[in-house]
Design a protein around this nucleic acid. Structure first.
Lengths: 256, 256
DNA sequence: CAGTGGTCTAGACCACGTG
DNA sequence: ACGTGGTCTAGACCACTGC
């Protein structure tokens, strides 16, 4: 790229053809990288090409690639490791486990967790779920319910909804066999990377049914967490309604 | 600064004398900027010197100053405005109001809020509050309780604790006269800028007293939010225990 | 028009991880 | 020794703001 008083803009127009029209170069590079991630050109956990390689591929300077990667790293889509390279974020990692699970034990001790799948079936989407997943009412969705326990104490009751077209072959049996975080399974088995989520939190009273499965008194206060998770391109891929027992745990949040 | 094969490092050692010893230059600049902010050299809402001025002052390149400011802007301590300058963040702004108040109405309509101070007195700090504020048990603290209503509906009951040595002259009367966000008052009247906060969230049942002031049924589920707020240098400056009625509001959070 | 932050480049050197 | 990302610089030009 020349940077002279009368610059040659030919290569610029080449680039903008395949990307958002008039935005900063590094933003265009960022979109291109996002497209590659979305398309699965580099899988979660793998390294992406080096900054110099990408600079050569896109015909820009290393600094411009760097700024694009900086933003993706700030959004936790990429992970930089000095001396090694830049890697696609994955949910198969101890560090990342608590990025989406904000429930924390009072005494700080990380206790052993167990997950029991109570139900998993394919059904027609209710209107509210369909809307949140940007599907049509009646489109088929996977509905699973599970109970998470810490130190043998039932703590989280989750009701999860997934688009049926994407999560083919997800059954109670395959879930029961799997060890590890659910979002890790989604990555490996269905090619769906969860990248971001919004949560709406309320306090509610346990219904008799809920109280029964959580082994608490009916009417006890519960934290209700309604989450919508998104993949690349802000496409919603999961709706999750969780009920948390906050007797010995709390939901941790940081405001900046 | 020379960048030759045999560089002259004299100016480097000059700088490191007044800052953390061996860290990247831009991190040292960042600390110096933080010190100036903490010391009140530039007040909330004011512009800080231009990048070129700061570069001249610290004897570094504009790019290095820029990277320091980038991080402070990412942490919401500074606000960049193209063509105008870089400004110190302030809580006197509509945009920032909802940075620390995460309670959102179901219907999205921003309703008028009113704040009623129920109590404000200087007392000796209980052990738990003192620990959170990094004071000694029995040091004097300001304790205030207030009720926030939206559309005439009582919604938030706050119990707030502040270090007495810093918040001299804070009385129920001065609070009653003041309009606007509490953190704005803290900035203007006491020179305390809240920069970050940690929250622990639980679901609880309303006690008879709480139910009475919030005009709900005794035993109703409430969101309990325990917040510790920090100024520059991670010094705790407020402990706040809030009870939120989440009937027509929810606590909004984003996971990245 | 001048001054501010925003973008882009090119090149040097440093720090880290691996072979 | 080599390749990776990390830091730092210098300089050009762009985009926005306000006089």
């Amino acid at each position: 790229m020349s940077n002279n008083p009368s610059p040659d803009r030919a290569s610029d127009s080449d680039r903008s053809a395949s990307s958002a029209a008039f935005s900063p170069l590094y933003q265009q590079i960022k979109s291109l990288l996002l497209q590659s991630l979305d398309r699965g050109e580099w899988k979660p956990g793998e390294a992406i090409p080096s900054e110099l390689e990408l600079a050569a591929r896109f015909q820009v300077s290393q600094g411009t690639v760097r700024k694009a990667i900086d933003e993706l790293a700030a959004e936790n889509l990429l992970l930089r490791r000095q001396g090694k390279g830049t890697f696609v974020a994955t949910h198969h990692e101890a560090k990342v486990r608590f990025r989406f699970l904000r429930l924390t034990p009072d005494d700080g001790k990380s206790s052993i967790s167990s997950s029991k799948v109570l139900e998993c079936r394919r059904v027609k989407a209710p209107a509210d779920i369909a809307a949140l997943l940007e599907l049509r009412t009646g489109d088929t969705v996977v509905n699973m319910r599970r109970l998470l326990s810490f130190d043998q104490t039932p703590t989280i009751l989750d009701d999860i909804w997934l688009p049926g077209a994407v999560f083919k072959g997800l059954t109670a049996e395959s879930l029961a066999r799997y060890r590890g975080p659910l979002y890790g399974l989604f990555e490996s088995e269905f090619g769906v990377s969860m990248v971001r989520a919004d949560e709406k939190i309320r306090a509610v009273s346990a219904t008799p049914d809920q109280a029964d499965t959580l082994q608490i008194a009916s009417g006890s206060p519960l934290l209700q967490v309604e989450r919508v998770s998104y993949t690349y391109g802000d496409r919603p891929m999961e709706v999750r309604r969780g009920l948390y027992v906050t007797e010995r745990f709390f939901y941790k949040n940081s405001l900046n």
